[in-house]
């Protein structure tokens, strides 16, 4: 046993510490990186929840920086998220578009009457095809889009006050300052 080989276990130990430190800090494996960041909102042509005779398209979402929120009445977490969406709609001057995902239209309407409606418009995605185009795999999910409809950020799961302040608001602030720089008013 020479002196150098005494350090081998220490080296192995340090390598293990580094590997585990990195491994345990990796994000929740459920949080898939979105492939859609910086891409335009996918094309769609779907009815509006308020008036099913009215057809909405991706152009219906442009003009302002906005949130797009995927929700459903079967989604338990959506009820938890709902008060925060109400607050955002009321206090943040940010339109929220809803995507009613794989849901029953009547139930969805009743839900909005019961809990109140934070959405400017709700898109009815009855077969979940728009959700597939957005890479959605559950609800709730929330996207930040800019005034041109380009997807800027995706949040999987409930938007709480804390999450809005720490992750969504910074993205929105950057977009707003960019917008202000382009069109000074």
């Amino acid at each position: 046993m020479n002196a150098r080989s005494l350090f081998v276990p220490l080296g192995i130990f340090l390598a293990l510490v580094v590997t585990l430190a990195v491994g345990f800090r990796l994000d929740d494996p459920h949080k898939l990186p979105s492939e859609l960041i910086d891409r335009p909102f996918p094309a769609f042509s779907l009815p509006s929840l308020a008036d099913q005779a009215q057809t909405l398209t991706e152009a219906s979402l442009t003009g302002e920086i906005a949130l797009v929120n995927v929700w459903a009445t079967w989604c338990a977490a959506c009820v938890i998220e709902h008060p925060e969406l109400m607050r955002i709609a009321r206090e943040e001057g940010l339109p929220i578009y809803g995507i009613n995902y794989n849901d029953d239209v009547d139930k969805a309407r009743q839900w909005l009457v019961r809990y109140d409606n934070p959405y400017r418009t709700v898109i009815v995605d009855g077969e979940g095809r728009l959700a597939i185009d957005l890479g959605v795999y559950g609800a709730p999910e929330t996207f930040v889009i800019d005034e041109k409809g380009v997807i800027q950020y995706r949040h999987v799961g409930v938007v709480s006050r804390d999450i809005f302040d720490t992750t969504l608001r910074p993205v929105i602030d950057v977009l707003r300052s960019r917008q202000a720089a382009i069109e000074p008013s």
Binding site: N102, G128, R129, V136, Y137
Partner: peptide, 10 residues
């Protein structure tokens, strides 16, 4: 899972 059913259909 619902998404699996939707993706199979797709």
């Amino acid at each position: 899972a619902m998404i699996a059913q939707d993706l199979r259909r797709e």
